[in-house]
Design a protein around this nucleic acid. Structure first.
Lengths: 249, 249
DNA sequence: ACACGGGATTGATCTGGATCAACCCGGTCG
DNA sequence: CGACCGGGTTGATCCAGATCAATCCCGTGT
């Protein structure tokens, strides 16, 4: 049995030889965060060939609510906002997606939500059909997808509590904690918390208006639990106090 | 090869002989609605032995938010309410579950939501560990579970739009449509819509108070889009008009 | 340097739904 | 039968956050 120096393991057949990764996968730092993390070096290249690498500019529409759900996207950098709207234009952002997150978890035939690039975005795009076929053949991917979907559902339940019962100040406090938490889990700067989205996007996410979001920030700052470093960065002075505010204690 | 008259198919080995179903499965009218619908008559008995049949009285707690997520329940009759709460007692109902629905989709280690019997309830209870093991061995069940979870997530997104942006009247109208829709899909009476839950449970679900729910019902009735048959039954006069109200048109 | 413009903040007022309170209605028990 | 009790409805008032309006702040282009 031949030992493959590059792969640091024994290869017993031609089939186990590991094909080259597409460059965007080889250098992708979102890989461990995403669904690809379920694949080993042998399965990953096959999976990678299903996808193409795409970019969006901040503000660009990625897909429209109600349109045929032809694609699944895996975010590799930047931030995407998902949203639903009413005919008269009222709009609710249902979630922000970061590197490692998937666009299209809640969609089946048509997109449950519209998606928009909040910052410049890079992503992998999969044809949904082929994505689903691959899943049927690779249960470990389906298992991972189920876990991600269940986590999203759990987060959605938290958000319902926020939208249904929390005050404006509690909402903003909770939002900052969410962002800090995500940043920590993705091992990037968590304090000061970076706010990549504009006030309008935050307001749409929290079921508030920009004015109320703004007032809540200054309110929290006056309370002394945060400090506004800039419009796009907030220092959390006391995590515990902020948590208390978020939970209405 | 022997043709089995009872099963209407050829049986080529002892192994394919179909063991007897537990009585509660044999007579279960939720079977096609639920995860069991993914199993054929040969796999179902094996799955069924994982579960025990349980009952709850209206008002009983089924599981507590934050407690270890040891069980998964599949509702076979009655209505269950899921909810999350804040320390000061504010409460948000995240969903109502009917026959065929699963309790525990969003939970991993601890319960994401508490669950409470809204009416008398019958359900199948599975040890989560064994449930997950079974899933790993039966991909068709996992696929079905993924689909159910994705649908729940989609419904959760709708509910975020409702909680974040709709007026009280729109919320109640949307709620009635949800119930009518569910009833129709479960092939039970959809008009008049039956309301198995009290006003408080509706209020907790819609992010309102009982008083506002009550006023919204009377408001919709005065508009002429519904008629209150009784406290627990609402006749939808015009589906289209009610839909317009729900969407703010 | 200056004008411009898009976003954020702050202030003044308004309002939908919460809160507080009274009353109603139907079922149950003494 | 009447008292009681747990919902549900209706009415009066209040207030958190929306709305409308002014100002600020800062990056950009001339």
């Amino acid at each position: 049995m031949a030992y493959d120096q590059a792969q640091r393991r024994y290869c017993d057949s031609e089939e186990r030889r590991c094909p080259a990764l597409p460059t965007h996968c080889a250098t992708c730092h979102a890989r461990q965060l995403s669904i690809c993390g379920a694949l080993d070096q042998y399965d990953l290249p096959g999976f990678a060939t299903l996808s193409s690498h795409v970019r969006f500019r901040a503000g660009q529409t990625i897909c429209e609510e109600g349109a045929p759900a032809d694609w699944v996207f895996s975010v590799t950098s930047g931030v995407i906002g998902l949203h639903k709207a009413l005919p008269d234009g009222r709009r609710q952002t249902t979630g922000f997606l970061f590197a490692g997150d998937l666009v299209g978890l809640s969609s089946r035939i048509v997109n449950a939500c519209g998606a928009e690039a909040i910052t410049d975005v890079e992503a992998c795009r999969f044809a949904r059909r082929r994505f689903e076929t691959y899943m049927n053949e690779h249960q470990e991917v389906e298992t991972r997808l189920l876990r991600m979907t269940a986590d999203e559902l759990s987060a959605a339940h938290d958000q319902m509590l926020l939208l249904g019962r929390k005050t404006a100040r509690e909402r903003v406090a909770s939002f900052l904690l969410q962002l800090a938490d995500r940043a920590a889990r993705r091992r990037v700067q968590a304090n000061p918390v970076l706010l990549p989205m504009k006030r309008l996007a935050i307001a749409d996410y929290l079921g508030l208006t920009i004015e109320t979001v703004s007032r809540s920030f200054t309110g929290l700052a006056r309370l002394g639990v945060i400090e506004m470093v800039s419009v796009g960065a907030v220092r959390i002075v006391s995590m515990a106090d902020l948590r208390d505010v978020a939970e209405g204690r």
